[in-house]
Design a protein around this nucleic acid. Sequence first.
DNA 1: AAGCCGGGGTG
DNA 2: CACCCAGGCTT
Length: 346
Amino acid sequence: MPPPSLAPPSVRPARDALLRWFARHARDFPWRHDRTPYRVLVAEAMLQQTRAETVVPYFERWMRALPDLHALARAGPDTVLRLWEGLGYYRRAHALRRAAQEVVHERGGRFPDQEAELRTLPGVGPYTAAAVAAFAFGRAAIAIDGNVRRVGARLLADPAPRDADLRAHLAPLLPARAPGRTTEALIELGATVCRPTSPRCDLCPLASVCSGRMYGRPEAFPAAGRRSPPRTRRRYAALHLNGDRLWLIRRPEGGLLAGLWGPPQQEEPPPGRFLPEVAHRYSHFALRLTPVVATPGAPPPPPPDGGDGAWCDPATVAELPLSTVDRKVVALARDAGLLTVLPSRP
DNA sequence: AAGCCGGGGTG
DNA sequence: CACCCAGGCTT
């Protein structure tokens, strides 16, 4: 039996309450101004699996450096990665650059304005396609992200709702004008009120139509998924120095930290002087990395698969895109007196 | 369907 | 520690 939450008699008040709540409580993010397709696409790419507050400074810096689609299409991979450095999931940055090149060079600069077309761009999946269609082009689409899924699961009291069920249930909330506001409002609601833990049902404009709340346990929905236990990897970062130049390699495409530079890593301890271990937790494994200062004159390992490798002076180290862990390693090397200049982020 | 892909905030 | 975040891609 379908839940009564959004049956015809209550759908209009619920929709009005949701949109009124959003008009009053929406946070002010830079991507909510000047919603061009380019700005929306960049924002949605950065926001994938990343908290909105984290994205703000990255988005503003990106827009200053690459203000439009053509600027991005012309930019090199290191420029893009440097602007992305610290956001993680670096495939997003490569895909965003390829998407810009595709629109500029294969679509004559005409941005796709429908979900199905958008979906063909690299890095654009079901959520982002719907979000760009709704936010930038005013399409009546509901983009389902983690927030919308949680809000919908609680409204339905369904521990694992299918996307089609969520769309069918939430579609009545779409207003005739500015339908993109509905997705925005549901996302905002999920982020600030219908939170994963300790939801604030007392502040929720949809509380009166929420089955999860009626059953008394809104936080039980959606049900938590199974997680594989994290594994620990021990590795060694080889610091090869030539004067104050440091040997860095570029990581190959497709894998971890794709396209980023860093000291070469290996599983066996190399000869040399050990520096303090750096611990870092990734989403699916834990890394214990020990930097080792290689014996002076020892030949550095060649770059992987014919990729790039270079002797980098401190200024270059500061400019190339490095992962957070490798920044820590370089900082250790600096503190040990091996490098002269502080590598800093832009 | 499940694994891979970063980093950080929060309880 | 745990979970999760304006997900997408690959197998």
